[in-house]
Design a protein around this nucleic acid. Structure first.
Length: 453
RNA sequence: GGCGACGUGGCGGAAUGGUUUACGCAGCGGCCUGCAAAGCCGUUUAUCCGAGUUCGAUUCUCGGCGUCGCCUCCA
């Protein structure tokens, strides 16, 4: 059984499922107003690995991840660029899923859009108002945190301490609120802004009520796991939870947060700092699997520095795994080595320890290579199968053989013929040409093997 | 100011109260190879500083120094 660090209790504890065999997960998805950056890539990759592992364990996973397609930033950008806000959200969503596809991130089972749930949000806010947990002011409707006895559960800090700090940040709607920490559920709109009707006036949703409404509707009360980036812990997730609690409903049973991507200087990559790097640029420059490999070699809760050196090292590591897959392709089939798989499960069950898991993958590759060198076919096959099973569960596809064009295959055959004739000058020349064309050329006793370099 | 995390080799990054300090990348040597590649074996001054606990600390405690995150809308 998977043990996970729970942000609420600050301990690694079993992910106790609401219903045996099934896992309901809510992952905070993007607000679509710009291109995906490295941080988005990390978050989606972390939970893609989680999902794949749970499925590998035989669980039925329902992964709900929202698209927030109405937000102040979307409106601001639309105004700045003088175009309809839907243009921005539609385009950004397409780019988002294109990037996810290239990363090998499986599409969530459900992708609800905030704009499709506005009516439900209004209904929820009305219920909060009716319960006396929310109140209208002249600029919107606010949740009263006084209605949430344990507000601050995820922040792990008292309200007074939180309010005393922070310094120079502005507090939205400060003048109208009963308590400085109360937050907007509904914001009244200006004439030109997108708006929806509500009992309190035309407006738009405030603090991520869509996440509350959609998670409870699609996953129901007491769903298993709520996750997202560590920077969403407070106030974003705290406020989601506060809404559910104020409604008298049970929210997530377990909270998971992944660490941040930091830049070369070790500072968090952040939109507010302006040091975000575009995910599509990374995908253009490196093997699409390299980022996943780099993240697997880092614990999901630790910060990770994503730079050229790390990505190139990850590519080199992948090249070794590809070479292994190609070299042992004749040993495909058979059952995975049970001992290896057991160790894999133990590592992953320990708070998703992909660092140990990927180390195990490399250890197993070495053992399999040794077995192959000494002609132990059965052991080679069992270890190879274990490697592929593990990389599969982690979402890493190994390249056993590329599609090689006929002309290149003919050159490889000519290389073999030259070697057989001991015409090494010709053989070396052909090899150099193939390498110059970007191929990895391995001349072995079984013949020349060619892979993408 | 409050809360929290962390400081390990050339780089990334684990683990541990004590024999051989994982794993990946890079480097070096060897085996293999016609030569390479791939692979295998070996290898290269690593635990921020100080004090304490202990037979023994990188690991536990305290104190420094340093880095980072969160404290109202950032994954």
């Amino acid at each position: 059984m998977l043990n996970l660090y729970d942000t609420a209790t600050r301990e690694v504890r079993p992910l106790a499922l609401r219903e045996p065999g099934k896992v309901g997960i809510y992952l905070c998805g993007p607000t679509v107003y710009g291109p995906p950056h490295l941080g988005h890539g990390r978050t989606t990759l972390v939970y893609d690995v989680l999902r794949r592992y749970l499925e590998w364990c035989g669980l039925e996973v329902r992964l709900v991840s929202n698209i927030t397609d109405i937000d102040d930033k979307i409106i601001n950008r639309a105004n700045d660029e003088g175009r309809p806000w839907q243009d921005i959200t539609h385009k950004c969503e397409n780019v988002w899923f294109e990037a996810m596809g290239r990363l090998g991130v499986q599409r969530p089972t459900d992708v609800p859009h905030a704009t499709d749930y506005v009516e439900q949000m209004v209904a929820m806010i009305a219920e909060l108002v009716a319960r006396g947990s929310a109140y209208a002011t002249d600029d919107g409707v606010y949740l009263s945190i006084a209605a949430v006895g344990d507000y601050g559960l995820l922040a792990h800090q008292g309200l007074d301490d939180m309010l005393s700090g922070g310094g120079d940040r502005e507090v939205f709607g400060a003048g109208n609120k009963r308590h400085p920490a109360d937050f907007a559920l509904w914001k009244f709109s200006k004439p030109s802004e997108p708006s929806w009707p509500s009992p309190w006036g035309e407006g738009r949703p405030g603090w991520h009520s869509e996440c509350v409404v959609m998670s409870l509707e699609l996953l129901d009360d007491g769903f298993d796991l709520h996750c997202g980036g560590a920077d969403l812990r407070f106030p974003h997730h705290e406020n989601e939870r506060a809404q559910a609690v104020a409604l008298g409903r049970t929210f997530a049973r377990h909270w998971m947060h992944n660490g941040m991507v930091v830049d070369q200087e070790g500072e968090k990559m952040s939109k507010s700092l302006g040091n975000v790097a575009n995910l599509l640029d990374l995908l253009d420059r490196y093997d699409a699997r390299a980022y996943r490999m780099l993240l697997l070699q880092t614990h999901y809760r630790s910060p990770v520095r994503v730079g050229p050196e790390n990505l190139e090292a990850a590519e080199a590591a992948l090249s070794g795994l590809d070479a292994f897959a190609a070299r042992t392709s004749a040993h495909s089939g058979g059952n995975s080595d049970a001992g290896v798989i057991e160790r894999f499960r133990t590592a992953m069950d320990d708070d998703l320890d992909t660092v140990a898991s990927i180390a195990l993958v490399f250890d197993t590759v070495r053992a399999a290579n040794t077995a192959a060198d000494s002609g132990e076919a059965e052991r080679t096959a069992a270890l190879r199968a274990a490697v592929l099973e593990m990389t599969g569960a982690l979402g890493l596809d190994l390249v056993e053989g590329d599609d090689v064009d006929d002309e290149t295959l003919a050159r490889a055959a000519a290389l073999d013929a030259a070697r057989a004739a001991r015409d090494f000058a010709t053989a070396d020349k052909i090899r150099a040409e193939l390498q110059a064309a970007g191929w990895n050329v391995e001349t072995t006793k079984e013949g020349t093997r060619i892979r993408r370099g």
